[in-house]
Design a protein around this nucleic acid. Structure first.
Lengths: 208, 208
DNA sequence: CGCGACGTTGATTTGCCTCAACGATTGTGG
DNA sequence: CCACAATCGTTGAGGCAAATCAACGTCGCG
């Protein structure tokens, strides 16, 4: 059998991949053959800090899993302000969701916040895997459901909480993420200015 | 073969179901057998205006497709304000996403805004369909992806647009929905007060 | 070691909310 | 079929949460 991309197992050991395998296994128990084909569809890529994986105008051809490092997806509005859509550190998935799913030009950037290592699968390969295996179809269905549920919770947070509550909630839910992020990035995720986040963190917003 | 629920085809004609079949067919072409099993898993329910299909504290056991009428899902925050999560008119799906997917107690209400007719499937039946048919698994995977993509776009809107822009966008995208809704519901979806929406609609918020 | 990116702080402004009052419309019981 | 209440939308006055603007300290890195 001919392969064009290096098989991921040829270039790295099982132990490096174990977070990925664990991530998948928590969703569905795959037959060895399916796990093998899944792994074979991914390639591993090293990414330098500040490097872009996705840019507006280009179709997001890949779905990305973070093995090591940190990423941020964001977009720039008409007034030039940037808005973070998502973060991803180890064991998170990231892409421009609308661009990847519908294979339309992206509106978001995905950029490395640190030197990172990712595994990525391209859209075509993912389609083939889903079409050829019920188990892998189930895997991706569960990933989509998780994404939708996560987004729905974020909408709820944004609707019901003020700036300070959103900050507190985020730090409570993702302490490890919050630590590693530049504050301008966190502020733009929480839909507030860096100045206001700074004031919240230092209790400079007095309640009366 | 024993059936406990009346087969949906026994109580209504194909032409009544055609919007539903059309909705499904746009996602995936099902074999007749799978379409048949899918239809058999749904039951049809008439719902009076103001009747609740889902309430906080109870697990959302059903995924709901609107054949006729209009619905709203919303939640009440600590201050007693209500926030609309989603609307659904003919040919839309609705539930409390997190509650249905994870079978945890709901946080949202789903209420009929008009006398309505819906088709609903319960969680268990959906699981069985997905497990037993690759095609039906694909169908539900695509529905989850659509939901996630839709939610992601809403997050983007909320991050990048002010109240007036959000209103204009909504009316542009969903003119038929906007017409039928009480304004308090639309305001709470757009994350503003009814008073402010009223001012926007009447240009009472003057630009200088 | 100098410059640009990042974070902080205070003064001022503003977009939207709150509250209150009032018409219009809808629903309902007598 | 009417009376009355409840719900809904509108308008204006005043208030507040968060943005904007500006200035400055600091740190990391090329």
């Amino acid at each position: 059998m001919l392969v064009f991309l290096p098989r991921i197992l040829d270039i790295c050991g099982m132990e490096e991949l174990s977070p990925f395998i664990e991530n998948v296994s928590q969703k569905i128990k795959l037959d060895p053959e399916n796990l093998d084909r899944l792994l074979a569809a991914f390639s591993m890529v090293k990414v330098k800090k500040k490097q872009f994986l996705i840019q507006p105008g280009f179709v997001a051809k890949q779905r990305i899993y973070v093995l090591k490092g940190a990423f941020r997806s964001y977009l720039i509005d008409d007034k030039g302000n940037d808005h973070t859509i998502q973060f991803a550190i180890e064991d998170w998935w990231i892409s421009d969701y609308n661009s990847y799913i519908y294979q339309k030009p992206a509106t978001q950037f995905v950029v490395a916040l640190e030197d990172s290592v990712v595994m990525q699968i391209d859209y075509r390969s993912e389609q083939e895997l889903k079409a050829s295996s019920h188990q892998l179809e189930t895997l991706f269905r569960m990933m989509a459901e998780k994404s939708a549920a996560f987004y729905a919770r974020r909408i709820t947070s944004n609707l019901t909480q003020n700036a300070e509550q959103r900050y507190t909630e985020f730090v409570g839910k993702f302490p490890d993420v919050a630590q590693r992020l530049p504050q301008y990035a966190l502020a733009s995720y929480l839909n507030m200015t860096r100045e206001f986040l700074s004031k919240i963190r230092h209790d400079k917003v007095k309640k009366r």
